[in-house]
Every structure is written in structure tokens, then in C-alpha cells.
Design a protein around this nucleic acid. Structure first.
Lengths: 309, 309
DNA sequence: AATCGAGATTTGTCTACGACAAAATGCTTA
DNA sequence: TAAGCATTTTGTCGTAGACAAATCTCGATT
């Protein structure tokens, strides 16, 4: 056996474990004095587990909108206090499901969700259960009440349920034709799955490409499948500054004949009017956009999108 | 309107579009003279689309095992020649499905797969259809015969089919209990889905965490669900040098009571005997490992894993 | 001819520190 | 209150070099 391996880990591993880039980790070290990794024989940084844990907590709080200057300099107690104060949007309805997940595992949650689906019908199920449940899980995660692995397990279950719904509903002749995906860097695919389920229900033809499709590939796909709409989703974690340029690039590749819809918490705070894109703050708005669409195919962009204010 | 948006993109966007890190892109520039990005007003690099395309091609070829020195210095023609020579493991059986995908879209492929599943039964369907189909798609993508968006669409369909199989088969009292996921940096989740389907079929209890679970979260999950086995998957694109250290870290967090199984094309070329891990080159080997497991729970590690040569 | 090991080469990661623009914040004024 | 404007914060990108691990090369040995 090798008794060697110290529990301290290198900077790239910290990047992967926390989601904070190496550049940021080094900058913080200089600016705030934290983290303060040890150095091994060469000058390479080695982070003790305790500091990694604290970084994880900081990242969680930052994802809720807090800023590094408020967090990185603080000690453990202050951070813990912030975590307690983090938002908590729990409906009573949601609590049941999270208890299920913890007590009966993924399988238990799945059962409960299917039951609810049968009882409410697809549209109400998605809008009234899945959506608030997602935010509840996000909040619980930010507060540290939910472990990352529970969040992963949750995500898997939801994914499975939504995929089934979307697939069973999707029909060959439906219109408009909608391509759903996320841009590179956006790993959260729940948004497009929810959209696919609801859109299919309202007889749109949905083609999902999963997450992280490069702009160029989206354009090719749009042409290959002759879609009317490209629907993208941006989570709140997606860096806002990147949304505008990315949408510009997409519009350039796509040409003018295809609508771009941007949904998700990240898109809600988007600077408006970017390159003929229709921002959809909520799924309800997405459904409305679907209803308002001119019935005829290939009718160009609707006024709401084409006009640049 | 701002007509001033040049099609050239920045280095971080190239990183996301190609999967090559900024460090590597800069090093190649110095070492091989390629890429040779333009510079904007400040000194920042701006990559023309053509160079990005070539980088994509290089990355594809490198994922098949070629080395930068053979590729990065070469011109377009030489690279195209390499692409033509890339492996091509197409069974006749596979061609049908890919034609389906291209002609009838994702929905067409799904229908065809379901038909085949019914006809062959789950085990043969996964081992004889899905597995070769995956490598055929990978090869086609490396050869440039398949667009990225087609690969994404394919992946979505397969995912959906496999998830359904795994979920319908999974049962409460099954044993052993297996946790399936991938490490951060490994985005390909098809491997664990295939494993989950087959393992469930053989009455293992499968818990999937999706992709990219940090080591510490895996350890917590393993404890929370009281699993006997943690099964990881590594694609051929996963940097080999990272596998060993990552598995060491996992073993440290996990303690000795839980087996670690490593599958996938990346694990197949792993340096053997790393930190009490059982490498599984193929899914068949995975099933065999399942059969050989001592029937009793909590029986410690089997000899094949515990012995350190 | 196949295998092995030592030495050379390739390759990606890591370090350091400065420059800088975009975003967020605070402050003033209409 | 809202709309500017100045200031601070913050992340990204730049250069250049050190270095270890992976891989290749080639001669010696079995």
C-alpha cells in the first residue's frame, strides 16, 4: 500500500470539484488571501479538503447572486450565516417529493411523480409541480440542505419522466417545428425537456439535441430539419455577459428565416432586444408564443421579433 | 443595427467549440505555427472559422489516438487523408439505423430501435445493436461523415430508449446495489446507461447519478445509498493521465468496503491495478463481474480486486 | 524476431504577474 | 424616483518559462 497520497488536491482538481476556474482561484488567492493552498516540492498549489469545502460553499452562494467580495474574505461562521439566509421557495407541495427522494431513493420519487402526473394531467403537472420543484431543489442546494448527489439523482429522475412525456406526445405532422438545445457551457438540460414536453402537448414538432451544441452545429441542424424555431435555455448560472454575443453569433449563422427563443432564468435577465431574439421568462410565455405564431409555415419572423425597438 | 460583428471568435469560445484548452491552443501556436489567429485592437486572439474547423478535425483525429505532432503541423489535405484512413467499424446492421436517422429524423430512428428491441430482447439488443451502433457513430463522426448535430440527436434517442429499459427493469430488492456515474470532465453518459440497463436486467439495483459527479459527492452518495459497487465510465476522449489519480482520490474518499468498476473505451487502456479498481474493457466483462460477485452483501472486496500485485 | 529498458522527445499543466473591459455599485442630479 | 456618471469589482486574456508524465526511439538481450 502507498501511505503517501496526502489528501490535498491540485488546482485543476479543485476546478473540477468546485466549478471555479484556475484563473479565479489564483486571483482570489492574491486579492482576498483565500484560498491559501500549501505548496508541494515544486511551487504547485495543494488545497486541503477543508478549503475545498469552503470554496464549494462560496460557489453555491455565488450562484444565488452574491458577490465574491462579500464572501471570499469571510470566515466559516459568516459564510454559514449567509447560507441560512439564502432564499427558500418551498411550496408545501414540493416537500413531499423531496422527502420521498431522501427516504425511498430515486425510485420512490419516480413513483410519486408518476402518480401526480396521472392525477393532474401533463400541462398542470409540468407547470405546477415540476417547475416549482426545480426551484425548490435549487434553493435547497444553495442552502446546503441537499447534497450534490441528491441533486444529481433528482435531475436524473425528472429527466426520465419528462423525456417519456415528450416522446409519447411528439407526432409526425405537427407544427411549428422547434429545435431545442443549449449552447456550449450550459449543462442544464431540464429547461428544454420541460419545453419539449409542453410544446409537444400543444402539437409542436420537437427535436431535441441535448445540451451544449456549438452554434455552428445548431445552424446546420436547423437547416437539416427545416425548423421554424430554435429554442435555447439559459440557467441562472450561465454567465450573463456571454448570452448576447452568443445569440448574435447564432443569428448570423442562422440567417433571418428562423426564430430564436431564449428561455430559462438566465434569459429572463437578458438585455432585451438582442439580435431579433424572443426572450421567454417563463414556460407559460413560451406556450403563449407558440399559440400566437402565425399558422402558416415559412411566414418569416413575426412582428414582435422582427421589429427592433 | 451593428454590421460590425466579424465571424472571428475568441479563444474561450474556441475552447468550448473544440474541446481544446486555452493553454493547449496557445502552446500549439508557438510550437507548430497553428492555429494562427488574428489579433484585434488589443492583443487578443481572434480565430477565423476556417481555423476553428481545422481544429475540430484535429481534435476528432486525436480522439482516435493520433498525436499532435502528426497532425497540427499538417495542411488541410494531409488531415483529410488521415480522416479517410480513420477506423470504420460499420456492421451492415448499423447502416440501416444511421440511414433512418438521416432520412426520418430522430423519431424514425426511435421507431426502428424499438422494433429491434422487441425482436431481439433486451440483452441481445444492447450488446449486439446499441454497442456496435455507438462505435459506428463514433467512427463516422471521426471520419467527418456525421455532423455533430446528428451525433447529438442520435445520443438523445439512444438515451431515451436506454433510460426506459433501465427504469422498467429496476426493482426494489435487487442486489448488488450499484451506483453509476462519470467523473467531472467526462460528459459521455451512454456507457453508464447501457450498463444500468443490462445490470438491472440481471437483477442488480442501479442508481444513476448522471454525468460529471465530483469525487466527494460520489463518496457521499455511495454511503447514503449503501452501495456495493461504484461503476464509472470513461470515454476514449477522457485524458488517460487523469484516470489514475482520479481513481486514487475516489478510493481514498470511499474507503475499502466498496468496489470500483471502471468501464468504457478509456478504461480499457488504463494502466492496470490502480488503487483496487476493477477495469472492465467491455460490457460483457461487466456482466461477468456481476455474476462472479459473492452473493452475500457486505462481504468485502473480492480477491480479484483486493489483491495488489 | 520479440521483448525490454534507457534515453530523448513530445506534450499538457502549472506558475507568475500585469493589462484591461464589462458588470456591478455608489453617488449625484434632474 | 429615475436617469446619468464615476468608481470599484471581477473575470478573462496576454506573455514566457519550468517541469513531469506520457510516448517514442533505438540498441541490447533473450
Amino acid at each position: 500500500m502507498k501511505p503517501r497520497s496526502s489528501p490535498n488536491i491540485g488546482i485543476s482538481e479543485v476546478e473540477r470539484e468546485t466549478g471555479l476556474s484556475m484563473d479565479v482561484l489564483r486571483k482570489w488567492e492574491g486579492r482576498y488571501g483565500f484560498p491559501a493552498p500549501l505548496r508541494d516540492g515544486r511551487r504547485t498549489r495543494r488545497y486541503p479538503p477543508q478549503q475545498v469545502e469552503r470554496l464549494r460553499l462560496i460557489k453555491r452562494l455565488m450562484d444565488t447572486g452574491m458577490r465574491p467580495s462579500q464572501l471570499v474574505g469571510q470566515d466559516e461562521d459568516a459564510l454559514a450565516a449567509f447560507a441560512r439566509k439564502a432564499p427558500d421557495a418551498r411550496h408545501e407541495a414540493c416537500a413531499i417529493f423531496l422527502v420521498r427522494l431522501r427516504n425511498d431513493g430515486p425510485e420512490g420519487l419516480r413513483q410519486q411523480l408518476l402518480r401526480e402526473h396521472m392525477s393532474l394531467g401533463t400541462e398542470r403537472f409540468v407547470l405546477d409541480i415540476i417547475v416549482p420543484l426545480n426551484t425548490a431543489v435549487g434553493d435547497a442546494w444553495a442552502r446546503g440542505e441537499l447534497d450534490l448527489h441528491e441533486e444529481h439523482a433528482y435531475s436524473e429522475v425528472i429527466q426520465c419522466v419528462l423525456r417519456n412525456m415528450a416522446n409519447q406526445l411528439n407526432g409526425a405532422g405537427y407544427a411549428p417545428r422547434v429545435l431545442l438545445t443549449t449552447l456550449p457551457g450550459e449543462e442544464h438540460g431540464l429547461g428544454i425537456l420541460m419545453a419539449a414536453a409542453l410544446f409537444s402537448l400543444h402539437e409542436a414538432y420537437c427535436i431535441s439535441l441535448g445540451t451544449q451544441t456549438p452554434v455552428q452545429a445548431i445552424a446546420l441542424a436547423a437547416r437539416a430539419h427545416d425548423v421554424d424555431v430554435v429554442a435555447l435555455s439559459f440557467s441562472s448560472a450561465y454567465p450573463r455577459r456571454r448570452i448576447g454575443p452568443a445569440l448574435d453569433a447564432l443569428r448570423r449563422e442562422l440567417g433571418a428565416g428562423v426564430e430564436i427563443w431564449a428561455g430559462g432564468a438566465g434569459a429572463a435577465r437578458m438585455r432585451a432586444g438582442t439580435s431579433g431574439t424572443l426572450p421567454l421568462a417563463t414556460l407559460e410565455q413560451g406556450l403563449e408564443a407558440l399559440r400566437r405564431r402565425p399558422a402558416t409555415r415559412a411566414s418569416g419572423m413575426p412582428a414582435s421579433v422582427a421589429s427592433s425597438p
